[in-house]
Design a binder for these strands. Structure first.
Length: 720
DNA sequence: TTTAGGG
DNA sequence: CCCTAAA
């Protein structure tokens, strides 16, 4: 039910005016496709919240790639069984209440009250409780003064807060109560004013120190940083220079692993969240909106070249419309204000055709453009040795994602490393830090749009492909062939100095190449066969939640389409220019001219180039389902076929089904010797030909004829 | 958004 | 699988 609600509200958040067909939508789509997993696209369709599902999928993807690619540890289940969602709140403001319903920028900047506002974004799992405040609706103030607020997502501290730690939070602890699964790092607040870019380096260390102090007590502390600061932290190698201050990410290290012992997977899902963003409005001084945006860009762009950040400028148009639409504080009102088109859409597509909704929504995003550029920060993964044997129930994989953290040194667990009896190095990756993101958005944008923006950024980052880097004592180990033994990682003391980073996929193949890949040593319980693509989590919980009343599955005839193991495309493009950085830049059409001058991403188009979906050959069972559906529905009704037999197969679009049918027909006509791939039973091929022949002649006649359909009323055969 | 086809 | 013209 909750989701139903969300579904509805979700649309409010998309009440963006007509969006010109832009590259954004394409990009989005491609980003998803990068993983070759259409399901990602479909997932968000289900609950009408694209953003959320995107993040979720991304996280799942990330987790999957990092941890499950090979072993398919149970963690994958976890990852895929939860829900991710953004939570936003204003930290600066001492309010305890949720401010989600308010526009990002509530008070006019010129009032001087903006500088104090900050927002925190959290990517948290949201598997159980649904906080109403987390709904994705947005309200924009009538304030028509367009302003841009910059949101920089980044972490300054090596701190790795775990869920457990979160519980200890005091000051802000309360805020977190509603988001029990959120987390962790403190983010830098960056003013977008031109001046901020010129802050001094000298402050960096101070900041760090201070931060440490603050964070010792609270997991959440906001700081005002500067561009320069950020830059400093970006380079992983620089960390070496400041190990002392940063090396203390300990506080969390000692914390007990979160994840319930009973459920090895839960830990993962619970901790998997965590992108938290603190944003600080940049305008102490309010100036022309347009002007501002321009200047802001300039000030940031250069200094941030090396960073991975996402920036997004919303066109004034957007803002305008947004505010108009959401003029009323009430959702219902907002709805009323919606253009007829939207309303009708909403009504029509609510659940059955959820997919359509997604498309609509995606369209709305088209206005924006995202680009990925090199020179970013690495996501850092902190690993810590295991205290408990993997064999034990304690298989919790605390993998949390943290946001762009610039850690001076790879932070590792403080517990003495565990050397298993069998000479295996046991590592526990406690958290993953999400690369730094840079976002720019009009202050009049709604929280909902802000969330989406952030989500987009996160999505882009994750979707762009990541690879794992290993740091030992802060130094990157480039040689993938060296053994852990050789590096000394197997030594207790070394393990503690081991760190992992998430970097844009590049030249170097994933660490997995190394036979000693740490991942292999991660505790994974293979007892639970993971037939489902870990990256496609939503199909079960997601669907059921989103459509409690809809026939999620036909357990009887449902076909597991996921047996085909999905391989994650290893991003090994060699031309990637800057390996460690990737920046997402979202630029609204209207702002393009302003940005035109700025050399954005002369990045490797590679990162921008979309990757085609991974190949996912149809399994026999899928073919079976397809054939059956077509026999009944006929050709030319692919959407229906999709709905009937593949509604739960997130990937497999009707186009895919159509294509598959096409190939099936072809396959059926060629000699068995010429066929390739998994052999399709001749019986099915015969049916294909029969059905094809039949429907070729009954094009216009709908299935009134029972010639081929003996089981007219048979329940739909759904493929999962 | 779907369909229908070519690539 | 992708891309798109058409509908």
């Amino acid at each position: 039910m909750v989701f139903q609600k969300k579904l509805d509200y979700g649309f409010n958040g998309y009440q963006v005016p007509a969006v010109p067909r832009g590259s954004r939508s394409v990009r989005r789509r491609r980003l998803f496709k990068k993983n070759g997993d259409d399901s990602q696209m479909c997932a968000f369709d289900l609950n009408g919240d694209e953003s959320r599902m995107c993040a979720f999928d991304l996280l799942a993807t990330l987790a999957g790639e990092l941890l499950l690619e090979k072993e398919r540890s149970p963690a994958s289940c976890n990852v895929s069984s939860g829900r991710t969602e953004f939570a936003i709140r204003k930290d600066s403001i001492k309010q305890e209440q949720q401010d989600e319903e308010h526009s990002f920028k509530q008070e006019p900047c010129d009032q001087g009250s903006c500088d104090e506002s900050a927002s925190v974004f959290m990517l948290g799992s949201h598997s159980q409780s649904h906080d109403p405040s987390s709904m994705d609706y947005s309200h924009a103030k009538e304030d028509s003064t367009p302003r841009l607020a910059s949101v920089i997502v980044k972490s300054e501290k090596p701190k790795n807060t775990s869920y457990a730690e979160e519980l200890v939070v005091d000051e802000d602890g309360k805020e977190y109560e509603n988001y029990p699964h959120t987390i962790h790092e403190t983010r830098h607040v960056e003013g977008s004013s031109p001046g901020s870019a010129e802050s001094h380096d000298g402050k960096v260390e101070d900041e760090i120190e201070r931060q440490l102090e603050v964070e010792q007590r609270s997991t959440k502390s906001l700081k005002h940083g500067t561009v320069s600061d950020i830059i400093h932290w970006d380079d992983p190698m620089e960390m070496d220079t400041k190990p002392p201050a940063l090396a203390s990410s300990d506080s969390s290290a000692e914390l007990p692993m979160y994840g319930s012992a009973q459920n090895p997977c839960s830990s993962f899902s619970r901790c998997r969240d965590d992108v938290k963003v603190v944003s600080k409005d940049d305008d102490e001084n309010s100036s022309g909106c347009t002007q501002r945006s321009t200047s802001t860009l300039k000030s940031f762009r250069l200094p941030c070249l090396g960073d991975r950040r996402i920036r997004k400028l919303m066109a004034s148009k957007y803002r305008k419309s947004a505010s108009t639409i959401t003029k009323d504080g009430e959702l219902s009102n907002s709805e009323l204000d919606m253009k007829p088109v939207f309303r009708s859409r909403k009504i029509c597509y609510t659940r059955q055709r959820s997919q359509r909704c997604s498309f609509k929504r995606r369209k709305l995003f088209e206005r924006s453009k995202i680009s990925i550029s090199d020179g970013g920060t690495n996501t850092k993964v902190v690993s810590d040795s295991f205290e408990k044997g993997i064999s034990g129930e304690e298989t919790g994989l605390g993998a949390t994602m943290h946001q762009g953290s610039r850690v001076s040194s790879p932070v590792i667990g403080h517990k003495s490393s565990m050397q298993s009896r069998d000479s295996h190095v046991k590592l526990r990756i406690k958290s993953f830090k999400v690369p730094e993101l840079f976002i720019e958005i009009p202050e009049t944008a709604t929280v909902g749009s802000l969330k989406r923006t952030v989500m987009d950024a996160v999505t882009a980052v994750f979707g762009g492909g990541l690879r794992v880097g290993v740091l030992l004592h802060g130094k990157k180990i480039r040689d993938d062939n060296i053994t852990l033994l050789q590096t000394g990682i197997s030594c207790d003391d070394k393990v503690e100095n081991l760190g992992f980073t998430l970097e844009p996929a590049t030249v170097h193949p994933p660490l997995s190449q190394s036979s000693e890949d740490p991942r292999c040593l991660l505790p994974c319980d293979s007892s639970q066969p993971v037939t489902r693509n870990p990256l496609v989590p939503a199909s079960d919980p997601g669907v059921s939640e989103a459509f409690p009343d809809s026939p999620v599955t036909n357990s009887g005839n449902s076909i597991e389409s996921n047996h085909d193991s999905v391989s994650f495309p290893a991003d090994t493009s060699p031309e990637k220019s800057t390996p460690d950085s990737k920046a997402l830049v979202a630029i609204p059409a209207t702002s393009l001219e302003a940005l035109a001058m700025v050399p954005l991403h002369r990045k490797s188009k590679r990162s921008e180039v979309v990757q085609r979906r991974i190949r996912r050959p149809f399994s026999v069972s899928e073919v079976e389902a397809l054939v059956q559906a077509v026999e009944r529905l006929g050709t030319g009704r692919w959407r229906d076929v999709k709905l009937r037999a593949f509604e739960n197969a997130k990937h497999r679009t009707y186009v895919d089904l159509k294509d598959k049918w096409k190939t099936l027909v072809h396959t059926a006509r060629i000699s068995p010797q010429q066929r390739r791939g998994e052999p399709v039973p001749q019986e099915l091929l015969d049916r294909v030909l029969a059905a094809h022949a039949y429907w070729s002649q009954h094009q216009n006649k709908h299935h009134n004829n029972k010639l081929m359909l003996q089981q007219q009323s048979e329940p739909p055969c759904l493929v999962h």
